[in-house]
Design a binder for these strands. Structure first.
Lengths: 330, 330
DNA sequence: TCTCAGCATACAATCGATTACATTCGTCTT
DNA sequence: AAGACGAATGTAATCGATTGTATGCTGAGA
């Protein structure tokens, strides 16, 4: 099919070793020879086989990325950050969508191992708990995004979830909402425990009413419907992420409670759409792109040196918009 | 590092050929031998190298997917469909985000060629025009999503964009909006020409006022601002996609024109968030997941037989919500 | 008992690159 | 002028699997 290095060597009247050296530039090759080789390469349209190179060099320049759900803008941004960081380093990304299915996550671990990826980024909610042992002695560097393990210390890149929870709750308190509710993500969701701790830094004991949900828009809507039977406005509402906040606001419209007059809503993530909503959504912004890029950076550090203890915590930032500011409603 | 087939063979006291056959099951192997081999495989945790296999078999079981922007829910859904269809066939997906940059698209074509992917899915707006020749004689099957080429016939999977444009425009006419505007995508955007034709099937000549934009929320917002200086309500507005519609609706709020009373808005795609908006967005639904899965299916068909002429056109469907129905506004 | 068929397995080539080691040849030193 | 050095290049091993061909063994038939 496509020409091989032997074809180039034959056409140039040199050995494959010389072609290889002329292209890699690692060793000295006579200028005239290099010119000749490059001319033939261009003429034949030769493109080296990454497969053959990988076999010989025992590295693939490919990273595996396992995410929960690529259609969630949080993960999409994260993947973008990882992909662009990888591109800058001449590497590629094998994408795996776990769909929250532990079975599928295990399957993908096998697939990625067999493809001999140079590193693994796991931004998957269900996986990390179930497969923590496997991840801990994975044959290549692994970095978790937005998860941590107390028992099995695996390098991680996370946002400061506790501070995020605290910022959200404190903001709603400052706005004067007399009660507080929270729509939490699924129990296995990565940031969840720390965000709850952060909320509880501000709101103690039984003054906080919570509902758990699936972490998407539909889940947020249903959770808000359940919540509406347990609480009366006005109150502040902290949501697991922006998607659940969007679902909750849809439910609130149907119920007839006004945002922000009756209910002050705060989301988490700051996905791009949040500022285009009506009302625009107050949220705890995470830099998803930086999380993804930071994960790639962590893998590189782990590969080049023997660093194994990485725990990068990215800052979060409260972005105040109309959904939580009383007296600004239309 | 990880055990190789030789390690397994040595431990089992057989040759590597026998191990290979025991695992592939293609040739008869004595049951006792197979048991022994499988036991050793399990004990050593042997996982075959896809790299070595690919080199020998000259196939990688990996597909390349080039998209314009993974953070656009349209492409995210499409990638999901492709990824899951690939998974069902025991294949994987190398993801490439072109970011609308032709340079980067060319770069990725090289990367994917070097990785010897078994097929290529191109759902990238800018690429297809600029690299049509390269795609036409790409060494492995290529399928375009939501693009077609008149001159170089490359297999394609698309939605019925013309019908989509027609449905959107006709609906707005039926709703009694006396004037019509359209926010179009970038000039190179895939579906754009046919959607315009569809709109013009319904609205002739200078009765249609158009603005082009970048195809994202910000672009939609700015386009609506420009448009507002050229038209007065009431009018119907057809948008390039749901993201631009969201941006347009944000602009309309700031301008103070009501949706749907002053302006009836129709988007394109039906991304998940559209039904959660306020007002919920009327849109021409495309089955993005099916487009992605269909692209994989097309690659399989092209690989197994010598089919080279594929032109799958998926149906679109008008989903009517409150953003375009007069007299239902809150 | 000898031969032959056929099953199970081994041997070795192969895929396409990289790279350690060997070789050639010209030039400089003494 | 002989030897040494080093630049340029070639030879061949290697990575880890698959697979065509060869071989050995067992049992059945004559």
């Amino acid at each position: 099919m496509s020409p091989t290095i032997s074809d180039v060597a034959a056409a140039a009247g040199v050995s494959t070793a010389t072609v290889s050296r002329a292209l890699s530039g690692s060793t000295r090759v006579a200028p005239a020879t290099r010119q000749k080789v490059l001319a033939i390469v261009a003429e034949l349209g030769y493109q080296p086989s990454a497969i053959a190179r990988s076999l010989r060099q025992q590295t693939t320049t490919v990273f595996g990325v396992i995410v929960t759900d690529i259609t969630n803008p949080f993960y999409a941004e994260l993947v973008l950050g990882a992909e662009e960081a990888a591109l800058d380093l001449g590497r590629s990304v094998l994408l795996c969508n776990a769909a929250g299915d532990p079975e599928r996550e295990g399957l993908y671990l096998d697939v990625l191992t067999e493809h001999r990826v140079d590193g693994l980024i796991v931004a998957s909610e269900a996986l990390s708990n179930r497969y923590r042992e496997r991840l801990a002695d994975f044959p290549v560097p692994v970095v978790l995004v937005n998860t941590k393990h107390e028992d099995a210390p695996i390098p991680s890149v996370t946002s400061d979830n506790r501070r995020g929870g605290r910022l959200a709750a404190q903001h709603l308190v400052d706005q004067g909402y007399p009660a507080m509710a929270a729509i939490l993500g699924p129990t296995y969701a990565n940031g969840r425990p720390l965000r709850v701790v952060g909320i509880r830094d501000v709101v103690s004991g039984d003054r906080l009413i919570t509902e758990a949900c699936a972490g998407d828009m539909e889940g947020g809507k249903k959770a808000m419907e359940r919540l509406s039977r347990r609480i009366s406005p006005p109150f502040g509402l902290v949501c697991h992420n922006d998607l659940t906040a969007i679902g909750a606001m849809a439910a609130l419209r149907e119920i007839g409670w006004s945002v922000p007059d009756d209910v002050g809503v705060v989301g988490f993530d700051d996905i791009p759409i949040s500022e285009y909503l009506d009302p625009p959504l107050t949220t705890v912004a995470q830099d998803m792109y930086a999380l993804g890029a930071g994960a790639v950076d962590a893998l590189i550090r782990m590969s080049s040196s023997e660093v194994t203890e990485i725990e990068d915590i990215h800052e979060v930032r409260l972005v105040v918009r109309a959904s939580s500011v009383r007296g600004e409603s239309g």
